[in-house]
Simulated scan of single mutants.
Amino acid sequence: MTKTTCCCHGCLSCFFDYETPRTIVIQSKGVGLLFRFINFLIIAYVFGYVCYLQKGYQDTDSIISSVTTKVKGYSFTNSSNLGPHIWDVADFVIPPQGENSFFVLTNAIITPRQTQSSCPELPTTSTICIADCDCTEGFSDPRGNGIQTGLCVNYSDTIKTCEVQSWCPLELDVNIPEQALLGAAENFTVLIKNSVTYPKFNFHGRNIMSDIVNTSYLKRCEFNRQTDPHCPIFHLKTMVSEAEEEFQTMAVKGGVLGILIDWTCDLDWWGKPCRPQYTFRRLDDKNPTNNVAPGYNFRFAKYFYNSDGKETRTLIKAYGIRFDVIVFGNAGKFSIVPTIVNLGAALSFLSLTGAVCDWVLVTCTRRRHYYLKHKTTVLDDSDDTTESLSMGTTYGTH
């Protein structure tokens, strides 16, 4: 038999061979305990954290949501500017419909019967004057209230200011009412209708649940975390109190309150029914050490025409609470693909156990040199050359 034939025969034999790693059993209580302890930690991580807490056996989907709101209530005021006045939903909910939010008027500075005319500008360092030459006709200050006419007129018995063309009389917004004009808004109620969808699982849900809520129930229910946590009708005071705020204090300068609806759901048959969870939180900054421009306010006007056909308006600087409805959550349902992927990825950590124990054996133990001798085999190049020559002689003999 030639050398070539032997090599080919050897390759065919190697193709049908199976090799297995050599196992060395080391009877060491310390290393054995370490090995079992690491295995226990990995298995606890896999089934406790990955499977139970993180639900690694589930596929997940993100929420799609829509929200509508309807506020109810009315209030009576008697101020020097407006006199006796009834405020209803059309007055204190601005605008009537918003995207996932609504604003409730709680306080206001009202300037009635404004007309397009000329009047003295409010006194500031740039508007106080002595003579007409101190005023510039046509000048417009972006922080002012109108366009200067070029005249210096009396603002009071002691102060003169530049006259402006504007809506007169000008608004005086320095002194905010210390008591909220519409403090009774704490008794207003809001109905929140929220519909959600998890398209991947073909799941549709509403916070007005057919198995709990019906028409007669809506007429008498009121949200209470302990006694009625599924009612979609909320008192404004209850929501502000849940956010650890005082309604009458917040109503003076306004603010922003978040209504958080959590739709985190387990859609497996063994999971709990998918129900929304409500929480409330103040979202605007109320840091007492940095109280520049606190609260929430804006201006709007109501326009009229008097008997002479002249346009007039009532200007309202509105302070109030803006309620932002924030819907979030995700849903999970059993799926074999994430189960295999997550379990396989987590169980792959078991291969680290042997590496850690080997490192401890050859590094930290008293007999580390003995263990290292039996675990590793060192081959010298010269031995390999001698063996090759020997094999060549053998092939030649055959």
Rank of each mutant, 00 (worst) to 15 (best):
C265S: 05
V190I: 03
A184D: 15
Q226L: 12
A251Y: 09
P142M: 01
G144C: 04
L218I: 03
F201R: 04
E137G: 08
E245Q: 14
G254W: 06
C135L: 03
N202K: 12
S166F: 00
H204P: 05
S216I: 12
V252I: 10
N154T: 10
F203Q: 07
I159R: 03
N202Q: 14
N214A: 05
R220C: 07
D141Y: 00
D266M: 06
Q226S: 11
S241Q: 14
C133S: 13
C133Y: 15
E186W: 11
F188V: 05
E178Q: 11
L236D: 08
C135M: 04
I130T: 12
F201W: 08
E186P: 00
R143G: 11
V256Q: 07
E163L: 00
T238K: 09
S156D: 08
D211E: 13
T215H: 10
M239A: 10
C133Q: 14
F203V: 11
A185T: 06
D262L: 01
N194P: 07
H204Y: 15
S140Y: 13
G258A: 11
F247K: 03
F201I: 05
C162G: 02
S241R: 14
M209K: 07
D157S: 09
K193Y: 14
H230N: 09
Y155W: 09
R206E: 15
Y198E: 05
G144Q: 02
I259Y: 13
N145G: 03
S216K: 12
K200T: 11
E222P: 00
E186R: 12
K200H: 11
D262H: 04
F203E: 07
L257P: 02
Y198A: 04
I212S: 01
M239K: 01
T249K: 06
E242R: 07
V213C: 10
T158Q: 07
G258I: 10
N154R: 13
V252R: 06
T189V: 08
H230R: 06
D132C: 03
V256R: 06
Y155S: 01
T215M: 11
L260E: 10
E178H: 08
K237S: 14
P177R: 03
I159F: 05
L182A: 04
F139W: 08
W167L: 10
R225G: 03
F139K: 02
E163M: 00
T215F: 14
E245S: 14
D266Y: 08
W167D: 13
I208D: 11
V196D: 10
C231D: 07
F223N: 04
H235M: 14
D134C: 03
M250A: 11
V196G: 02
L236S: 02
T136L: 13
T227W: 11
A180H: 04
T249L: 13
D141Q: 00
T238C: 07
E163P: 00
Q248I: 12
I208E: 13
E246D: 15
D266A: 05
G146L: 00
G183I: 11
Q226G: 05
G258S: 10
V153F: 01
G138A: 01
R206G: 12
Y155T: 01
H235T: 13
A251W: 08
H235Y: 15
G150P: 01
N214S: 06
K219T: 13
L181V: 12
Q165G: 09
F188P: 02
G254N: 04
Y198L: 07
T136A: 10
R225M: 09
T197P: 07
